[in-house]
Amino acid sequence: MNIYVLVKRTFDTEEKIVVSGGKIQEDGAEFIINPYDEYAIEEAITVRDEHGGEVTVVTMGGEEAEKQLRTALAMGADKAVLINTEDDLEEMDQFTSAYILAEYLKDKEPDLILTGNVAIDGGSGQVGPRVADLLGINYVTTITDLKIEGSTVTIVRDIEGDAEELETSLPLLVTAQQGLNEPRYPSLPGIMKAKKKPLEELELDDLDIEEDDVEAKTETIEVYLPPKKAAGRVLEGDLTNQVSELVSLLRNEAKVI
């Protein structure tokens, strides 16, 4: 089976966000594979181990994303591809990313494409479904279970807390939701092997993409932090009084009940 995983390099969830000069500061920050993409990698490896085939991990960005690709290879992916957009593109949006990824994938005849249902940085959740539609294949988002028998695919997906069971077929793009699996940690032999696995680097030229074709449709004009909350009030006194004071504050001061 020809399996592709689309991954994104994101800030570690532990990181505080610092804005200076209107931009998010990246200096000194730790980066990880977007946690939802880790579920996608784990699932891809599991599917390959069961059905055979090859797992290729694909990302876009600058040189530094190689680190996350090596981690995916160490987990067990077979090949990695970095589409380096660093020199060509200043402004990107989801339209841009999906176009580039679809141009890369269009002649690869993927049976299954996996990615996270959302990236924890931008949080739009658009790129997976956009890529599927550009490739003309079906997609299912926020999946928590995946079974493949022949060309029949049985899926459970999370829809706002409820579980939807459905049937579809390959080729298919799915986006991973938490609960799909427990991503493995790279083993030491895995890390050693990963160093020798193929990592291909492409630029927009290699994909015959003109910058004009991928010009962003939307534009971020400002990035800022939410206003700091003033310190709250820790209630004091007898617990019974605290509870009745709280109820009265919620009703009369905060007016939320």
Partner: peptide, 16 residues
């Protein structure tokens, strides 16, 4: 819209 799950916000305009 929130980014980084609400750790920060961005203002976005439609360009085209």
């Amino acid at each position: 819209r929130p980014i980084f799950s609400g750790k920060a916000f961005e203002k976005v305009k439609n360009k085209d």
